[in-house]
Amino acid sequence: MSSVSKGTRRASAPELPVAAPLAISAEEFHSLLDFFYRKTGIVFGDSKRYFVDRRLLDRMAATGATSMRAYLTHLKYQDQAGLELQQLINAMTVNETYFYREEYQFRCLVADILPEIVARRSIAERQPIRLWSLPCSTGEEAYSLAMQLLENWPDVDRYDIKICASDIDTGVLRRAAAATYDDRAVQHLSAALKARYFVHTDGHWQVIPDLRCSIDFSPINISDRRDMSRHDAMFDVIFCRNLLIYFDDISRRQAAEALFDALRPGGFLCLGHSESMSRISSLFTVRKFTDAIVYQKPE
């Protein structure tokens, strides 16, 4: 879930007629937002009213709920398997990203971060180097990481490397695995990179099978402690960019703890350019490299 904002992504549910008979009161709106926040940590302010209403009305229509109250009751008490909650999450999270976004951090990865990580371990060590793109949205970041390593890290052939990519939105995970993109998504890639890693057909760019197979996509809810604890101490580097800005202070704090636990000792966390872990948690050490400021879990 790279962003939650007004965007162009369409919800999967059918569009409502213009003069929809359903309406959502302010009380219902806040009740739903509170429920959504408790499940995901994501906060929507009143300024997002239009955005939220549109998607809620879509979901109500898709589920046949005749009132907001009925829909909330369904979500809270009847949706035992969480299927409708997942649909709502998919509808409420908009994913706008592109290849090599905030490219300076990819430079930092190969110039500074990975050399430090491999300096601490022997080649004989069997544990692969693990990278995590979280949230991965439609996959651009994870594939960019793979391309950056293959193109620019001289040691890439000396180590086993695993790239995992996760998102709360199962819809974007399907799109990430399909790996088909429009011109806008690949606009910052050189012609050589596009030629090497994409097949261009019918106006779309699809990542080549070898690269697609190198990423493991899976769902994750960073606000769910049990979900996150499955990944304790697994990763050497986590890219978690432009997610925490959608959380409130409490959720940010909890997310920081979860990210800390998911890193191996000495592992690195890369946040978005407008995000600062120093304002959230004192768990990490700030590392200033030539190309980027990143956060490190102490050894």
């Binding site: 293959l150 695993k162 995992c164 493991d216």
Partner: peptide, 17 residues
């Protein structure tokens, strides 16, 4: 390609205590 696909990444959720 030296990148490995990771199917063994996540452990099963721990039992609730």
């Amino acid at each position: 390609m030296p990148l490995l696909r990771s199917h063994d990444a996540a452990a099963p959720p721990a039992d609730e205590r």
